[in-house]
Design a protein around this nucleic acid. Structure first.
Lengths: 216, 216
DNA sequence: TAGATTGTTAATCGATTAACAATC
DNA sequence: TAGATTGTTAATCGATTAACAATC
């Protein structure tokens, strides 16, 4: 019922819970279960059952009253919805500790993401191999991205270089950026920027720890 | 006024924005600025000015009408509030790619966190050096944590081992856990668990990318 | 059938944003 | 003083939770 034909975007909190469900559901599936109900999920995850129903509904899955959801079907629906059933190529910029770890972290391959090349600005790093992948000069990123139809960029450079790298990515036609630098990145509206701000989590952790130590 | 003397916990969204302010404010400070107003911050970060004022207020800082905030004072207030002005020791469990990267990532030292030892279950990893730190057997974690008064644990083991490792940490008196495994961890109420769920961010990124590609 | 569970509509809660008085 | 900005109270918005009818 909307003129532009656009669905209302799925709320981010819902989207972030889906991988949590997925992990739990896959374990159930591997354990031989065939169906699952929201109350079972709720007991395990300590979420509200109504919330779980609403969350799962966005994937298009239908449950059966009194029975629950078909587990195999549900896992597949979540994977398809999150884009984990196909694989997209990604470029990573910044072959430092964190970047190299992500390149070597093969598990993302089963979650829709294949890091096909790493880039850096530092001549000392260029040409080196990181987990069997050669580190390329960052200047080559835009052309290569276009030629290889790479739509995802991962930024693991230090904060001062992040915007510059993002600009190169946008120039290369990249449409989604996973940003590990603790800084805001400007990009056109049709480019998705998702921040993974480790310092934010660290700040929350330390503040809450200090609070409980002071009060407890 | 509340009988137990506890402050209402600062909302997590506010807490997660403070590091973002901090990064920007420090840059301003390094650039020679002396005061900053909420509208300046808002222009840069694209946040609502009222929200910024409320967020900053939790640190106890006072601004001056018509002038704004004293920048040096503000940066210090944020750092102190987040616990970035002192350093706490942390143990890391799981010396794989990601764990090793975090151990080698020295920048956390200036943000309140010093990773003093890495642990693993795998005999092939135990005894090896990771960025000049020897990898210790995970079984030694509880005793060492108590002896060294380590209150923070970082979990970078695979999901199936995460709960077991968390239990060892709790047993060793650890009070805050930074969990990189994509699984829920059970811990006593007085132990803080902060999840860094890379798969959640990845899922959001891919789902939104697929949506825009389909619609655009 | 009775009971459990889904799906959906309504109520609540908390966070964001708007309005505005206080102040330098 | 006039104007800009803070700090705070009120209104809005969106997400979570409760209530309940539909269904197997």
């Amino acid at each position: 019922m909307n003129l532009k034909g656009h669905q209302r975007a799925v709320p981010e909190p819902t989207l972030r819970r889906l991988p949590v469900y997925h992990h739990m559901l896959r374990q159930c599936l591997d354990g031989g279960m065939e169906t699952v109900s929201c109350s079972q999920i709720a007991d395990e995850l300590h979420y509200d059952p109504t919330q779980i129903r609403k969350d799962l509904a966005v994937t298009g899955i239908k449950g059966r009253p009194k029975v629950g959801y078909d587990l195999a079907e549900l896992v597949d629906a979540v994977e398809t919805f999150l884009g984990w059933n196909s694989t997209r190529k990604a470029f990573l910029a910044g072959a430092g500790h964190l970047g190299s770890a992500l390149v070597g972290y093969g598990r993302f391959n089963r979650y829709g993401l294949e890091i096909v090349a790493a880039f850096d600005r530092d001549p000392a790093r260029i040409g080196r191999k990181v987990h069997d992948r050669e580190v390329l000069p960052i200047t080559k990123l835009p052309n290569l991205a276009r030629r290889m139809h790479v739509l995802i960029g991962i930024i693991t450079v230090p904060a001062p270089a992040a915007q510059e790298v993002a600009d190169l990515m946008v120039q290369g036609g990249i449409r989604a950026i996973w940003n590990f630098a603790p800084t805001r990145i400007e990009a056109p509206d049709d480019v998705i920027v998702q921040n993974e701000d480790l310092y934010a989590t660290l700040g929350v952790l330390l503040q809450r720890l200090n609070t409980t130590l002071r009060e407890g």
